[in-house]
């Protein structure tokens, strides 16, 4: 019992230290960008440093008080859980976080959240559309942005396209169409918002050539066709489609999300 009493504050300090290390690991390894928006990077970084310091001081206190009767702060052992469980949970979670690498969100998540060709208006709105950027230099998000500003698909027919994204198989689309999609993040991975455009494969290809979650670069030109609405808002809809000329598989980029 006495041992347990002395162990608890150590566990507290360990929990704080472990979280400090975890947050710093995310910050320094660049994995943070799989979790949250870059605007909050500094917050996590500062928190990591503060936690590390706190944990150090806390453990220092215990070491300093060794020998003497540990005069712990008055209010202790008063939690929802039995003493030690909460710290244990924190330490356990931190270790789990240190062992596991955060993964890139998958097409499954994209389908579950519903892919759109509209953007949350929060994102930088296009100052102008069309003439300022060359169509072949636009990223997928630039296209979505442009489309947001001027949604008429026919306006873009014939423009060259070269975009990167991951493959999503939409159950609404015919077999020779895939979606090329990316996630947009406003705060953290929890609110990641999938946007995408349909890609028409070449005549001899079927979607099984490009399994879901493969990262691809699509080159081609814009056409408009009436297709079943993959956004499920109506039965059929005339929409902007990339008529693919070449599709190359690429590595998962180190910054898979757009902001």
């Amino acid at each position: 019992m006495k041992n347990r009493q002395n162990l608890l504050p150590v566990l507290d300090g360990m929990a704080i230290l472990a979280w400090g290390i975890l947050l710093l690991k995310y910050s320094l390894s660049g994995q943070l960008k799989l979790l949250i928006h870059p605007n909050y990077f500094w917050l996590v970084y500062v928190t990591g440093v503060v936690l590390l310091l706190l944990g150090g001081v806390k453990i220092g206190q215990l070491v300093g008080a060794k020998g003497k009767r540990v005069s712990q702060f008055q209010e202790k052992h008063l939690t929802l859980f039995p003493p030690g469980y909460s710290s244990g949970l924190l330490v356990g979670t931190a270790i789990l976080g240190l062992v596991m690498t955060p993964s890139v969100l998958k097409s499954e998540t994209a389908l579950q959240r519903g892919i759109r060709e509209s953007l949350p208006l929060t994102r930088a709105q296009p100052q102008a559309f069309g003439s300022t950027s060359k169509p072949e230099e636009r990223s997928l998000i630039d296209w979505i942005r442009t489309l947001n500003a001027y949604p008429e698909p026919d306006a873009y027919i014939g423009e060259p396209v070269k975009v990167k994204g991951f493959v999503v198989h939409s159950p609404q689309l015919p077999d020779n169409y895939i979606l090329v999609a990316r996630f947009v993040i406003t705060c953290c991975a929890v609110d990641a918002y999938p946007v995408g455009l349909p890609v028409k494969l070449q005549a001899q290809e079927s979607r099984s050539t490009y399994p879901p979650d493969t990262w691809i670069e699509v080159e081609g030109e814009m056409i408009s066709e009436t297709l079943p609405d993959y956004m499920k808002e109506s039965a059929n809809k005339r929409q902007l489609i990339i008529d693919s000329r070449t599709i190359t598989r690429i590595e998962t980029p180190s910054d898979p999300y757009h902001y």
Binding site: V44, P102, C188
Partner: peptide, 20 residues
């Protein structure tokens, strides 16, 4: 897998505010 990513994303986002 995406469960862990979302789980840690929530925690990492909330931890600074909790500390504050």
């Amino acid at each position: 897998m995406s469960f862990f990513t979302l789980f840690f994303s929530l925690l990492v986002e909330a931890m600074p505010f909790l500390l504050l």
